[in-house]
Simulated scan of single mutants.
Amino acid sequence: MGYTGRIVVARSEKPLADADVLNESSYAGGWRAAQLDGDLRNALQMLVAQTGAPAITAFILDSDVADVEAATPAGGYWHVYLHPKKAAEYGAPELGQTPAEVTEQALAWAAEAGLTADGEAVRTALDAANVFAEETFYELLAALGVKPAQSE
């Protein structure tokens, strides 16, 4: 049995969530990630509104699938399943975008977020099939430019 819950990621000076946080991590450039126990509806919209900056979330289902959504204050939005074959097995609806379209949208999101993304690494993460979907999500974050904080 794997992890089921939501991971929220945004640039913020304060913690991203007040309750039900299993783990919170800091990243370079003031980015934070919080792993929530369960789901928080409208998490993406709340993060963008609270921070006034681009944000990204992933709902992880039993560590098998990551349902990823990202948005910007200017109205940019993209949505993708990591491990899409597993998502289809779970009955997730088709999203109707090609990997190339999602990659383009993800790179635009990263640019608006002030990040330096690697397009090839983004595409590789979108196609990855790790054992754990959350591992694939963290690879996607790194490809988008959300990097671990440097050790002091």
Rank of each mutant, 00 (worst) to 15 (best):
V102E: 02
S26M: 13
K14L: 10
V68W: 08
R11D: 00
A66T: 11
V80K: 06
I56F: 12
A58V: 07
R123S: 09
V65S: 00
A149L: 14
G2P: 07
G76M: 09
E69P: 03
D39H: 12
G91E: 10
A10K: 03
M46A: 14
A143M: 08
L47V: 06
T98H: 04
N130C: 13
A34E: 06
E89I: 12
A149S: 09
A70M: 15
A53L: 15
Q97F: 10
A92S: 09
S63A: 08
M46Y: 04
Y138T: 09
E139N: 13
A108C: 02
V48N: 02
A53N: 11
A74F: 08
T57K: 01
R6C: 07
A129K: 15
A55S: 09
L61W: 06
D62I: 03
A129G: 11
A92H: 05
T4G: 06
G119H: 01
Q45W: 12
E139I: 09
T72I: 02
L95G: 05
A58T: 03
N42V: 05
T72G: 10
A106R: 03
A142Q: 04
L44G: 04
L144F: 12
A113L: 08
A43K: 00
A74E: 14
D39K: 09
D127N: 15
T51L: 04
D67V: 02
W78K: 07
H83K: 14
E139T: 13
V8M: 02
A110Y: 12
W31A: 01
H83Q: 13
E135R: 15
A17D: 03
Q35Y: 10
Q35A: 06
